[in-house]
Amino acid sequence: MHKVADIEVQHNIMEANKKLANKNKEIFEKNDIFTIDIVGAIGSGKTSLIEKIIDETDYKIGVIAGDIISKFDAGRIENHGVPVVGLNTGKECHLDAHLVEHAIGDLPLSDINLLIIENVGNLICPVDFELGSHIRIVVVSATEGDDTIEKHPMIFENSDLVIINKVDLADAVGADADKMVNDAKKLNPDVNVIKTSLKTDEGFQTVLNSINKFKNNL
């Protein structure tokens, strides 16, 4: 014979990641590191943006490059002479705070004042997983079609800066970059939206100004 019992669990599965994210943030702040989580569509220009920030600013930069299986992006960053940790997520579609915690351990924290985390190319999953960063930048590009933003509202509602990249190619693919700006503003009226081309440099200085502003307002 056995008896039946109803056991209260009340265990929040999202909480574990959130706790680790807060722990990461504490580590960043103890080391005076401003941290950016860059999310965005596959191939939208996330790594290109990081490369440009490394080359054209005086920040002491460190990078965590997330990729599903390869280490290509980490290799590209390494060529720019900054410390980088490549993270493979294996089958997962997003970085989580736990993976980032491991990567932090492999970085020379005292030599860094700006940490950039390149998340896995995905406009859906990273929304549920905070990493402990101070701001989140979402990068999409005109070549993905000008309805990308409408189709993935959550990530735009949960970001601090939206970059519409590859505007140099907008006409060629028949995309309306201004519509994308409006869509982002509609979803998140407080968000900063910047049109860029990392080929022609259009908008890049505005991105840097915006990052500086976030950093200084901390």
Partner: peptide
């Protein structure tokens, strides 16, 4: 208005379980 506070709906919670125990 889009500037609203979210009160609920962002969690995934194991609320309770029914188990069998030895007597």
């Amino acid at each position: 208005n889009k500037r609203v506070s979210i009160l609920n709906g962002k969690d995934c919670i194991v609320r309770n379980i029914i188990i069998e125990q030895p007597n």
